[in-house]
Amino acid sequence: MFRRSYELMEKMLKVYVYQDGEKPIFHQPILDGIYASEGWFMRHMEANENFVTEDPGKAHLFYLPFSSRLLELTLYVRNSHSRTNLIEYMRNYADMIAAKYHFWNRTGGADHFVAACHDWAPAETRGPLLKSIRALCNADIEVGFSVGKDVSLPETYVRSAQNPLKNLEGNPPSQRPILAFFAGNMHGYVRPLLLDYWGNKDPDMKIFGPMPHVKGNTNYIQHMKSSKFCICPRGHEVNSPRIVEAMFYECVPVIISDNFVPPFFEVLDWESFAVIVLERDIPNLKNILVSISEEKYIEMHKRVKKVQKHFLWHSKPEKV
Rank of each mutant, 00 (worst) to 15 (best):
G184H: 08
V244F: 02
E155F: 01
T53Q: 02
N50P: 00
M42P: 02
K319D: 07
M224Y: 05
A115C: 13
N171V: 07
N219E: 12
P212A: 10
R106V: 10
E22M: 15
H112F: 13
M45W: 08
M9F: 15
P317M: 08
H112I: 02
F260I: 08
M90N: 12
T53M: 06
M12D: 12
V254D: 00
W270M: 04
E169H: 14
L61M: 15
R159F: 09
E237Q: 05
R191S: 02
D281R: 08
L136K: 04
C117F: 04
W198F: 12
R303K: 15
S226P: 04
N259Y: 15
P212T: 09
M247T: 01
T74D: 04
H118A: 09
F2T: 12
K149H: 10
V307S: 05
H223Q: 12
A246P: 00
W40Q: 09
P203W: 05
F66Q: 10
L194Q: 05
P317T: 06
A98D: 12
E250F: 01
A161K: 14
D119H: 05
N48I: 04
R4I: 14
R126T: 14
I256T: 04
A123C: 02
K131I: 11
F265D: 01
A59T: 06
V244W: 00
Y89N: 09
F103M: 02
R91W: 11
Y18P: 11
M9W: 14
K286Y: 11
S272K: 15
S67G: 09
R159V: 14
R69L: 13
H118C: 08
I207P: 07
V214T: 15
L13V: 15
E38K: 03
P317G: 06
P233W: 01
N85H: 12
L136F: 15
V17Y: 09
A59G: 11
I207S: 04
N284F: 13
